[in-house]
């Protein structure tokens, strides 16, 4: 029974490992040609670059934010449930819808963010967001001041080459950290109170020392799990890219899932799509085996 059920999965895997030209009626063996194309063309180099940037930025930040939020909520006396609900909302909401909502929030002329920034020229907002409070920032040269001086020339966020990928990353973090927070909250409740008392007796008085001695090691398995699942999810980013940037401007947000979709479905180049798929699955499997390896080595007490 199960063999029949799992069979399609394996067949699917099998197809992706051949490089036939699917879609056409005639099938032709072209060997490694697709892979050669993939590693020599600029587009695909940019694709790897965009995917790597996204994963490397989103995973650590959303995990750390999730952990911080969980620890903060855990130490609150009241109101923790409200924050928990709010921070979890992005996980539940349809990502596609929220992507469009973000698009308008960050819209250069209609968006609430840029109008908020424009109204703050010369005031406290310029001081805070222009980083004038940092000793090494010249208040006349800060990005905020320059934008105010140049007729409110604030970033176009999603439409601009040097900000698009970061904006997409921001939306990714916004969506992911609530999930991590909830997992960490569950992890935190599993730490016995006696351990903290024992740590205090051993001289770990400050919160930071207790965190280093008790919380962080005890959260080891949770962290490992959270990192793995977030990484796999971020690798699969698609919705925000498709609806907001279509891989642009100039391929700075051309991530793998979108590349597969564009090549295989829209341009009907199935074989190239399959080649990208294989590389994609390769990445994920390496990551997962790496995780298993760490589990066996480290997370035992």
């Amino acid at each position: 029974m199960i063999i029949i059920l799992i069979f399609p999965l394996f067949l699917a895997g099998g197809i992706s490992f051949t490089d036939y030209n699917l879609g056409n009626k005639s099938l032709e063996w072209i060997g490694l040609e697709n892979y050669e194309k993939m590693f020599s063309r600029k587009t695909y180099v940019k694709m790897i670059w965009a995917t790597a940037t996204y994963v490397i930025v989103v995973v650590p930040i959303s995990v750390v934010l999730g952990l911080c939020a969980a620890m903060l909520l855990n130490s609150l006396r009241f109101g923790a449930d409200i924050y928990k609900t709010i921070f979890f909302l992005p996980v539940m909401a349809t990502l596609l819808a929220m992507a469009i909502a973000w698009e308008f929030t960050l819209h250069p002329t209609l968006g609430i963010v840029n109008s908020f920034l424009a109204n703050g020229c010369g005031g406290a907002r310029e001081f805070i967001f222009g980083f004038h409070w940092l000793p090494w920032v010249d208040s006349q040269q800060s990005w905020y001041h320059v934008a105010c001086a140049n007729n409110m020339d604030f970033p176009y966020w999603l439409k601009q080459k040097n900000t698009a990928i970061w904006t997409i990353c921001f939306i990714g973090i916004w969506q992911a950290f609530g999930f991590n927070m909830v997992l960490y909250l569950a992890g935190l409740t599993g730490i016995p109170r006696e351990l903290y008392q024992a740590a205090e007796m051993d001289g770990a008085k400050s919160t930071w020392e207790q965190f280093k001695l008790v919380t962080w090691p005890m959260l080891g398995p949770t962290t490992l799990f959270v990192v793995t699942i977030t990484t796999i999810r971020t690798f699969q980013v698609f919705d925000t890219i498709e609806i907001l940037t279509k891989g642009g401007p100039s391929k700075t947000t051309y991530v793998m899932m979108y590349a597969i979709f564009e090549k295989a479905i829209q341009q009907n180049l199935t074989s190239i799509g399959a080649a990208i798929t294989v590389v994609f699955i390769g990445f994920i499997l390496i990551l997962t085996f790496f995780q298993r390896y760490i589990i066996e080595k480290r997370v035992h007490y």
């Binding site: 199960i2 063999i3 999965l9 067949l11 699917a12 992706s16 899932m257 798929t277 994920i284």
Partner: peptide, 24 residues
Amino acid sequence: FVFSMVLFCLLIPVHGIALPLYVM
């Protein structure tokens, strides 16, 4: 054996096999 197959399948990312599924 079947159970180890299930465990292996758990590792396969759903999005990753989307294209072969689509072709099928």
